[in-house]
């Protein structure tokens, strides 16, 4: 029975991958492709947040600082030295890891709301810093006016493309990468430790888990991948504005999408990211011009309804549907098999 399920799943997966690879042939308008790219980017960012926020249950409300540090460092190195963003992203990602450790060491001792508040305070501080730093030595940071990525025309080395299609494939690979990381994490010792310490820190410690160390590792992994998302954002938009890249909007959006999709699961944040970003874009497209802020209001209502009626995330809906399907199959095969909820 399990064998059939795996085969069925891999067939569905293969079809999905092929469809996604062929998508740019069907979607020829750059605007539509851009919307899809943004949706995938949000799916990626929500999944990156999910490693520390979902699996380890540490409610970070300041992940915007990691998108910002990745983006700013990569762009500054590119603008100043012409260093390829493909190399710059490792510097940016590395800096995000360091920052996560510096922030995590004192704050991971805090529990519950105190940790969340600390992350808000730190990220707000960094937004103020970015807004007020015009330059550091010869490095232009841009302050409140923002930082423009130096244009060099169509160049793969410089991560600049005239067409949207390369961006689409890059972000698609990023989403696959983060799903792979989450899937690995879920099966690994680290993943078990994170969920255990999320459920009960004292019990986790009594079972040999170094709580702070494991939080730091999860925080570093999460920060690194979040920073890569920031780099992609910078190269796609080609303009960094402190409030947009580091602000509360960026930070809370990741949290919303992950929770609405289903935090602590492998695919929940991906589904939440794509679905909500799409809904938000559709509402903005149709209502954006009519009444100031109406589209944001409606978007907020939708998020609210989802949280009320589907508190464990959209992923749970998908799992229920999947279970109903497999149960039907089991009944036809004359087996109940209802004891095993782990099939999905």
């Amino acid at each position: 029975m399990t064998g059939i399920n795996i085969n069925k799943n891999s067939v569905i997966l293969a079809v999905l991958v092929v469809l996604l690879l062929l998508l740019p042939m069907a979607v020829t308008k750059p605007y539509y492709l851009h919307v899809i790219i943004i949706c995938l980017l949000w799916a990626y960012l929500a999944s990156s947040w999910n490693i520390i926020g979902g699996f380890a249950g540490q409610l970070s409300l300041g992940h915007g600082i990691y998108t910002a540090i990745g983006a700013y460092i990569t762009v500054i190195l590119f603008n100043t030295f012409g260093l390829s963003p493909w190399l710059g992203l490792f510097v940016g990602g590395g800096a995000a890891i360091l920052l996560s450790l510096v922030i995590g060491y004192p704050t991971f001792g805090l529990r519950g709301a105190y940790y969340a508040l600390a992350t808000v305070a730190i990220s707000e501080g960094i937004v103020v810093l970015l807004n007020n730093t015009g330059s550091i030595g010869r490095f232009t940071v841009g302050g409140a006016e923002g930082l423009i990525v130096k244009m060099v025309g169509n160049s793969a080395v410089a991560f600049q493309f005239n067409s949207k299609i390369p961006y689409y494939y890059i972000v698609l690979i990023m989403v696959f990468l983060i799903i792979f990381v989450a899937k690995w994490l879920k099966e690994s010792k680290l993943g078990y430790y994170l969920v255990a310490l999320r459920e009960d820190e004292d019990a986790a410690a009594a079972m040999g888990i170094n709580v702070r160390r494991n939080k730091l590792i999860a925080g570093a992994i999460s920060a690194f991948f979040t920073a890569l998302g920031g780099v992609f954002y910078a190269m796609l938009i080609r303009y960094l504005e402190p409030n947009a890249i580091a602000g509360a909007g960026m930070s809370t959006q990741m949290v919303f999408l992950a929770i609405v999709g289903g935090s602590g699961t492998v695919l929940g944040p991906v589904i939440g990211g794509i679905l909500l970003a799409l809904i938000s874009e559709i509402i903005r497209f149709y209502l954006g011009g009519q009444l100031m802020g109406l589209h944001l209001f409606i978007y907020g209502m939708i998020v609210l309804l989802m949280i009320i009626y589907q508190p464990r995330g959209i992923i749970e809906l998908f799992e229920k549907i999947g279970q109903r399907f497999s149960r039907k199959h089991n009944d036809e095969g004359g087996r109940s098999g209802a004891e095993d909820p782990s099939g999905a």
Binding site: V195, A196, E199, D200, D202, A203, A204, A206, G264
Partner: peptide, 12 residues
Amino acid sequence: RTFQVVKPFGKM
């Protein structure tokens, strides 16, 4: 050690 007030990891 076990805890007097048991501490299962509820969502596992």
